[in-house]
Amino acid sequence: MYLVLLATIISFVIMLIIGPYFIPFLKKLKFGQTIREEGPQSHMVKSGTPTMGGLMIILSITATCLLFLANRWEVTVALLGTLAFGFIGFIDDFIKIILKRNLGLKAYQKVVLQVTFAMILAVYAAYHPNIGTHMAVPFIDSLLDFKWLYIPFTVIFIVGFVNAVNLTDGLDGLASGASMFAAVFFVLSCLYNGYYQLALFAGSVVGACLGFLKFNIYPARVFMGDTGSMALGGALVSLAVLTRMELYFFVVGGLFLIEAISVIIQVFYFKMTGGKRFFRMAPIHHHFELKGWHEKKVVIVFWFVSVCLAVLGYAGLIINI
Score class of each variant (00 low, 15 high):
residue 184 V to R: 00
residue 189 S to D: 09
residue 182 A to E: 08
residue 31 F to G: 03
residue 308 C to F: 08
residue 147 K to P: 06
residue 21 Y to I: 00
residue 98 I to R: 15
residue 48 G to C: 03
residue 303 W to V: 04
residue 127 Y to R: 10
residue 29 L to I: 04
residue 233 G to K: 12
residue 32 G to Y: 10
residue 118 A to L: 08
residue 162 V to K: 02
residue 259 E to C: 02
residue 113 L to D: 11
residue 187 V to H: 06
residue 6 L to T: 14
residue 102 N to P: 05
residue 286 H to S: 08
residue 306 S to T: 02
residue 231 A to Y: 03
residue 129 P to Y: 08
residue 73 W to P: 10
residue 81 G to K: 12
residue 252 V to N: 03
residue 143 L to H: 06
residue 190 C to I: 08
residue 294 H to G: 04
residue 170 G to V: 00
residue 171 L to R: 01
residue 288 F to M: 05
residue 320 N to I: 09
residue 219 P to N: 07
residue 5 L to N: 09
residue 316 G to N: 07
residue 225 G to Y: 01
residue 217 I to E: 06
residue 214 K to T: 01
residue 143 L to F: 14
residue 285 H to Y: 02
residue 266 Q to D: 07
residue 192 Y to E: 13
residue 134 H to W: 10
residue 87 F to N: 05
residue 20 P to W: 02
residue 14 I to N: 00
residue 164 A to L: 01
residue 263 V to R: 02
residue 98 I to S: 08
residue 190 C to G: 10
residue 249 F to Y: 15
residue 308 C to V: 03
residue 308 C to I: 13
residue 165 V to I: 09
residue 54 G to I: 01
residue 108 Y to W: 14
residue 186 F to L: 14
residue 175 A to V: 01
residue 191 L to A: 13
residue 175 A to T: 01
residue 41 Q to T: 15
residue 15 M to C: 03
residue 299 V to L: 03
residue 7 A to Y: 03
residue 123 V to S: 11
residue 116 T to W: 09
residue 208 A to Y: 00
residue 151 I to T: 06
residue 140 I to W: 15
residue 313 G to W: 13
residue 260 A to V: 07
residue 112 V to A: 14
residue 71 N to M: 05
residue 24 P to D: 12
residue 165 V to E: 02
residue 163 N to A: 06
residue 263 V to N: 07
residue 251 V to A: 06
residue 247 L to G: 02
residue 277 R to N: 08
residue 46 K to R: 10
residue 273 T to G: 05
